[in-house]
Design a protein around this nucleic acid. Structure first.
Length: 426
RNA sequence: GUGGCUGUAGCUCAGUUGGCAGAGCACCUGUCUGUGGAUCAGGACGUCGCGGGUUCGAGCCCCGUCAGCCACCCCA
């Protein structure tokens, strides 16, 4: 059948109505969580210059994994791989005109030129949410609370999704204490990232080969396994106090293993994982980054935020049976077309019902009534209306409840009310 | 970017040592003219991902390529 169809671009996503419904479901939950805390929706260009990302020194990965091409004018442009540089620019351009604390959120498409596999495509949607201005643990706690609110709103319990929290400055002080010099931090950071993926003894061997001595390794292990380490750090104590007050502490745990890309974050870091399955999957991640505005030439400005991709969230929701049932038709009512003769009558009835505030689909042509009912059934519609010779003569409409199977004849003027009754009872 | 697995009907898949292309589900039609879902009866459905090679003969073997998946890598 499907011959010679030009394939879609590798790694892109096609949203058939059912997938689009899931995307919109996620979007609605994201929007609600964001707005509950007073965040404003905003958006940035999808196309940016490569320089915007190259400006962040040390991020060659951006150059390797960004979707870049030369436009007709010879400029190098990039499909945005992340939002934060655009945020930094837009803030910097109006830094003195904006109102702080500034709370912004966004949900839009991003592109990364990666090797596609499950949970990772070249085109994805991402929720970004940030607070700029305050530099307090309580601000950090608010972002974590927003994340927890989202997880809760889609039906993920603390047992299914957990947010792990750490602090980069705490880790720096601890690394100092066990004699890991500043220039080894990147190495150690990678080591920590890797620890969950390797067997413990293999990981230790790897760590020693990578250049740690036994005393450093021992210190590192003790550090990573210390669940009470947060108590030694004022900011984390305040953070957990605030989380408790915000009512989300059941979703949050301290974990020294969370480090997240060393060069970016300056304080609190956090990452939510799906812990319902056999594999721990990252749902969202973020933290405090206080240097960003200064890096792009703005005045120093503190910031905290996180990002969440739609792909993994969709998979996790599906695996936990949390995706709402798909309703194919946004219109619960079908007006059938009895014959050519009554086509105009059906169209007029549909228009009346729409005027009464109902979503109504009119069958587009005369066809066997059985086929029109089949259509209504497949589209998940709740009510079918029949307008044939008998009904028109008596000024009535046959209203059939497709869920219960009951059918009654109703005076035409009473049809909207009758439909609303049926819909309300289901 | 590296390594591996997979690709057969709309979907999920079977297909023996190389010998006529299969199943289930979905789909279409059912006693001539006003009613969907369930059952029954009948029917249609293939570039075996694509290109090349070996062979009397390839879905099956070999090479290449594309796509999906898995592990690395990375996760802004």
């Amino acid at each position: 059948m499907a011959k010679n169809i030009i394939p879609s671009v590798k790694g892109t996503r096609e949203f058939y109505p059912e997938e689009m419904a899931l995307r919109n479901f996620i979007y609605e939950k994201v929007r609600r969580a964001s707005q509950q805390f007073g965040y404003q929706e905003w958006e940035a260009p999808y196309l940016e210059t490569l320089e915007l990302y190259a400006a962040k020194s040390g991020e060659e990965l951006v150059k390797e994994q960004a979707f870049t091409f030369v436009d007709r004018g010879g400029s190098r442009v990039t499909l945005r791989p992340e939002l934060t540089p655009s945020l930094a620019r837009m803030i910097a351009k109006k830094q003195r005109q904006l109102t702080y604390p500034l709370r912004w959120w966004s949900f839009g498409p991003f592109w990364r030129y990666e090797r596609p596999q499950k949970g990772r495509s070249r085109e994805f949607f991402q929720w970004n949410i940030d607070m700029l201005g305050p530099d307090t643990p309580e601000a950090d706690a608010e972002l974590i609370a927003v994340a927890a609110s989202f997880l809760k709103s889609v039906g993920l319990s603390p047992g299914q999704a957990t947010i792990y929290v750490n602090n980069r400055r705490l880790m720096d002080s601890q690394f100092d204490a066990i004699g890991i010099p500043a220039e080894s931090r990147l190495l150690v950071s990678n080591l920590v990232d890797r620890r969950n993926k390797m067997k413990e003894d293999a990981w230790q061997t790897y760590a020693l080969e990578a250049g740690l001595n036994r005393s450093q390794l021992g210190g590192l292990i003790a550090l990573l396994e210390n669940k009470d380490l947060w108590k030694e750090w004022e900011d984390l104590r305040r953070l957990f106090t605030a989380l408790d007050a915000l009512g989300v502490s059941e979703y949050v745990e301290f974990d020294a293993n969370v480090v997240r890309g060393l060069l970016y974050y300056t304080g609190t870091v956090f990452e939510a994982f799906d812990v319902s399955g056999s594999v721990r999957r990252s749902l969202l991640g973020g933290g405090r980054y206080n240097n960003l505005l200064a890096d792009v030439g703005g005045d120093p400005l503190s910031a905290v935020g996180f990002a969440m991709g739609d792909v993994v969230v969709g998979i996790v929701l599906a695996e936990n049976g949390l995706i709402p049932e798909f309703e194919p038709s946004p219109a619960p009512v079908l007006v059938t077309v009895f014959s050519e003769e009554f086509l105009a009558e059906s169209l007029a009835l549909s228009a009346e019902l729409r005027k009464a505030g109902l979503n109504v689909t009119n069958y587009p042509e005369p066809a066997k009534i059985a086929n029109q009912f089949k259509f209504a059934n497949k589209m998940g519609m709740k009510i079918a209306l029949i307008l044939g010779a008998i009904e028109v003569e008596s000024g009535q409409v046959a209203v059939k409840d497709l869920v219960s199977g009951e059918q009654v004849n109703v005076a035409r003027a009473d049809v909207p009310e009758r439909i609303k009754q049926i819909l309300a009872s289901e």
